[in-house]
Write a protein that binds this DNA or RNA. Structure first.
Lengths: 229, 229
DNA sequence: ACAAATTTAGACACTCTTGTCCAATTCGTC
DNA sequence: GACGAATTGGACAAGAGTGTCTAAATTTGT
């Protein structure tokens, strides 16, 4: 039997476990060493698998790389859409709810393992695989940004925000939410929970100073509170 | 003499000219291929120089790489400080002046060749040269962010802006100014003049909605009035 | 327990790259 | 034009990495 995608037959647990283990190790190594710097023996060692097994599963180094980027893209997209679905459409406390959303977005989509790896692989190897990353672009940013923008548009329409261009606002929201994490990202670090909360809090406050209604649509009981910083 | 690829302008003569030519080609190639993926022959060809000359000048591949990062860091810092010195301390038209500043910052420091290369090299190889990039961090972000923050603090003190934390505001200003360039950056592209202007304009508008005084008066005689307005 | 599928370790040929050495040539300068 | 320094191209050894092949060991399903 030839190897390859066999939709009917589930090979086995051990087999599948090795596949996952290889993918994990490979993304780790490709990410750390770049495509050219990574070598199959490293990946095999880190996966606890023999070199030959990697060739059995994936053919060659380049196919392995492509499989990994596809896999990461898919998982990251899933995470992003799952997080978008928690967007506060009917916020009780707009600021708190948006901060919580920003934290979720950062923690689950930007700072997590997959997000970090995908981002780095795109930056590092993007130019060498134009068609692969064009695919990522369509499936990823091409679909997630409109989805986020739509949520902000809805929130504005419901009277919670004063937004001209939801697309711009969405980008600015995300930019503000991780404005303070950029230097950490640069060096491949992972911001801790506090940094994420800090950045999200400051970012959302600024966002609301720019786009918040003067008087919260729901109850305008005490307007003096929001002047405070 | 056989001429190879001479992409640069005038093959102006001299030892020093070769040095520059090597540095240019090497940063280009290291950036495009990553450290491990780059090879000396590529660099030599792109520099229009023999391989041996590179070894004569720089000893080995790693020394060449370090020299390049140092060089880029220095030049980028110079550019950033030069641009910071054009910060509008006494703006006539606050919005227009800040937009122009944001455009300068993006065009001269972020989107230009040196900025792009340095950013990519840091992201790609940062983890492998901790001491080198610690140096960058001190000389670069460690000095430029406070300088930018100081300018915003001064602007706020002069009554043009309403800022609590100048450090946060500085980071948010930059984040907003290139919020719309992120996807382009991801793939190593260079935003064109229009995109830069767009992003800067939208970013500064939002920034001013958040931090601008309601009344752009230069006289801060009635500063208490706007808190409740 | 048996048979098929899978994994393993090691050897292997092949290619690519680094860094060195050297003789011939060219360049900069006087 | 001549001299010394720099550059060149080519050959070279050493090392590393890819991908293939094999026979033996292990795992898996029945």
């Amino acid at each position: 039997m030839k190897l390859g995608v066999s939709p009917d037959i589930v090979p086995s647990r051990g087999h599948e476990a090795k596949r996952v283990s290889i993918m994990d190790a490979a993304s780790e190594v490709f990410c750390r060493e770049s495509f050219a710097g990574a070598n199959i023996d490293m990946i095999a060692a880190e996966a606890g698998v023999s070199r030959q097994t990697i060739y059995n599963h994936h053919g060659d180094k380049e196919k392995l790389f492509v499989a990994i980027v596809r896999d990461l893209t898919e998982r990251c997209n899933a995470g992003i859409f799952a997080t978008i679905s928690t967007f506060p459409d009917q916020p009780k406390d707009l600021e708190a709810d948006l901060i919580a959303f920003a934290v979720r977005m950062n923690r689950n989509c930007i700072c997590n393992r997959d997000g970090k790896f995908l981002r780095k692989l795109i930056q590092t190897e993007g130019e060498r695989y134009p068609e692969l990353f064009a695919e990522w672009r369509e499936q990823g940013p091409g679909r997630t940004w409109p989805a986020i923008a739509a949520r902000f548009a809805r929130l504005a329409h419901a009277g919670f925000l004063d937004i001209d261009d939801p697309d711009v606002a969405a980008r600015q929201f995300m930019a503000l939410a991780n404005a303070e994490l950029q230097t950490t990202f640069m060096l491949g670090g992972t911001p801790d929970e506090d940094e994420v909360l800090q950045s999200a809090t400051h970012g959302v406050r600024t966002f609301l100073r720019a786009f918040g209604k003067r008087q919260p649509a729901a109850n305008a009981s005490k307007q003096g509170a929001l002047a405070n910083a």
